[in-house]
Simulated scan of single mutants.
Amino acid sequence: MNPTMHAVRLGLQRGRLEFRHSLGSSDQVYNILIAVAYTLVLWFQHDSVVEGSPLSLAALSLPSMIGASVAFGGLVGPAGQLSLNREDGTLLRAKAVPNGMVGYVVGRVVQTSLDISFGLVVGILPALLLIPNLTDAGLLDWLAVLPVLLLGLAATLPWGAIAGSIAKSPQGAMGFTMLPMMGVVAISGIFYPIQALPGWLQGLGQVFPVYWVGVGARSALLPDAAAATEIGGSWRTLEMVGVLGVWAVVGFLLAPTILRRMARRESGADMEQRRQAALQRGMG
């Protein structure tokens, strides 16, 4: 078997195994908290009607939350995992094996994708079961949203890897990604129509992938008439594909180079230094 393909196959297996292991970890508390938060937000919104539309605010927020979850997980998840694996020596061991970095990257992509998918099911399903008439989306509508979510994942995953490569610690990676991402979500029309924001914030929000993944998810799950609530009164599908595509292409052009440079600099001494720093943080 081709060595690269063998590494890819091992990466696929590793990603699945690590995802399965994560199901029994304390990390799932986060998914439970997100499920409670989503359900509460949608519950309080389900009686509010969007001005100029027969849709409830909850129906408008549901696909937006799905899109934001994918973008958030695609950026924050790889950044945290990559920085953690630098600290615990996983990355150094991968570097020492022929094509080990290929298998490592494939494994990270697989685990992140499965983590996000599982988180979406756990986060959204309770709201769908508990809130009547939350959405009229059928099977074809849910299938139509998949390409949008995959494009959103492609637009954010490489940037998460870049952030994890630059960060000096897992805490630093969270600082690079989580705090800025929360600000971006706030101006991306996820929990309320973006038109409610000042014009300059509307423009800024449209620069980032979160807004466009939300638009794409809404276009798949909401009726055509709901486009009247969007900027310009349309789904702007070409713009959505274009912006997400640019983020994905630029990210995938930059990420391999930055990852290779980061991997070349990895050494046992560096790993031990980070491990000692982590132990001191733990004792502090």
Rank of each mutant, 00 (worst) to 15 (best):
residue 10 L to Y: 09
residue 12 L to T: 13
residue 12 L to D: 03
residue 12 L to E: 03
residue 13 Q to S: 11
residue 13 Q to Y: 06
residue 19 F to G: 06
residue 22 S to C: 00
residue 22 S to Y: 01
residue 22 S to G: 00
residue 22 S to E: 02
residue 25 S to L: 10
residue 26 S to I: 02
residue 30 Y to H: 13
residue 30 Y to A: 15
residue 33 L to E: 03
residue 37 A to T: 11
residue 40 L to P: 01
residue 45 Q to W: 02
residue 47 D to F: 01
residue 47 D to M: 03
residue 52 G to D: 10
residue 52 G to R: 11
residue 56 S to P: 04
residue 61 S to Q: 08
residue 67 G to R: 02
residue 67 G to I: 04
residue 71 A to K: 02
residue 72 F to I: 01
residue 72 F to R: 07
residue 79 A to R: 10
residue 80 G to L: 15
residue 82 L to H: 12
residue 84 L to N: 07
residue 85 N to Q: 15
residue 87 E to I: 00
residue 87 E to T: 13
residue 87 E to N: 09
residue 91 L to Q: 07
residue 91 L to R: 05
residue 92 L to V: 09
residue 95 K to D: 11
residue 96 A to V: 08
residue 97 V to C: 03
residue 100 G to L: 10
residue 103 G to N: 11
residue 108 R to Y: 01
residue 108 R to S: 09
residue 109 V to Q: 03
residue 112 T to M: 06
residue 112 T to W: 01
residue 114 L to A: 04
residue 119 G to Q: 01
residue 123 G to Y: 05
residue 123 G to C: 10
residue 127 A to F: 03
residue 127 A to K: 01
residue 129 L to T: 06
residue 130 L to A: 15
residue 132 P to D: 08
residue 133 N to D: 15
residue 135 T to E: 06
residue 135 T to K: 05
residue 136 D to P: 04
residue 137 A to D: 13
residue 138 G to C: 03
residue 138 G to W: 05
residue 139 L to C: 05
residue 140 L to S: 15
residue 141 D to H: 06
residue 143 L to P: 04
residue 143 L to I: 15
residue 146 L to E: 02
residue 149 L to M: 14
residue 152 G to Q: 05
residue 155 A to F: 14
residue 156 T to D: 10
residue 162 I to K: 11
residue 164 G to Y: 14
residue 166 I to M: 12
residue 167 A to C: 06
residue 172 G to P: 07
residue 173 A to G: 09
residue 175 G to T: 15
residue 175 G to Q: 14
residue 176 F to G: 00
residue 183 G to W: 06
residue 183 G to K: 00
residue 191 F to A: 12
residue 191 F to D: 12
residue 191 F to M: 13
residue 194 I to T: 03
residue 196 A to E: 04
residue 198 P to E: 05
residue 198 P to N: 04
residue 198 P to S: 06
residue 202 Q to D: 00
residue 203 G to S: 14
residue 211 Y to T: 07
residue 212 W to M: 01
residue 212 W to F: 04
residue 220 A to T: 11
residue 238 L to P: 00
residue 239 E to A: 06
residue 242 G to T: 14
residue 243 V to A: 13
residue 247 W to K: 13
residue 253 L to C: 15
residue 256 P to V: 13
residue 258 I to T: 07
residue 258 I to A: 08
residue 259 L to I: 15
residue 264 R to N: 12
residue 267 S to R: 10
residue 269 A to W: 07
residue 271 M to D: 00
residue 271 M to G: 00
residue 273 Q to C: 00
residue 274 R to T: 01
residue 277 A to S: 14
residue 278 A to D: 04
residue 279 L to V: 08
residue 281 R to I: 00
residue 281 R to V: 02
residue 282 G to Q: 14
